[in-house]
């Protein structure tokens, strides 16, 4: 995915109800682009089948 522009990030913020000042916009844009591209390349055969639970269910822990 190509990087988001300052204008696109400003529009995204407005649509999301997030107030981003002009002073903050440049760094917010760079941070957002770096963060998004930071997971683009990750792939794993089970990525789409695993449930995105943060932790094991407690009953599983009880059995361990």
């Amino acid at each position: 995915m190509s990087d988001l522009t300052f204008q696109e990030v400003a529009a995204l913020a407005k649509a999301s109800g997030v107030v981003v000042s002009e002073d903050d916009l440049e760094e917010v844009t760079h941070r957002l682009n770096v963060t998004i591209t930071g997971v683009e390349e990750f792939s794993h055969p089970d990525l789409d089948s695993v449930n995105p639970l943060p932790f094991r269910p407690l009953e599983e822990v009880d059995d361990s």
Partner: peptide
Amino acid sequence: LAASLLPSQVVHKAARMRALFR
């Protein structure tokens, strides 16, 4: 602020990565 604007698909992928990692 940057984290407030992360697309849900990106957050969802990171959550799946955490489950795989765990």
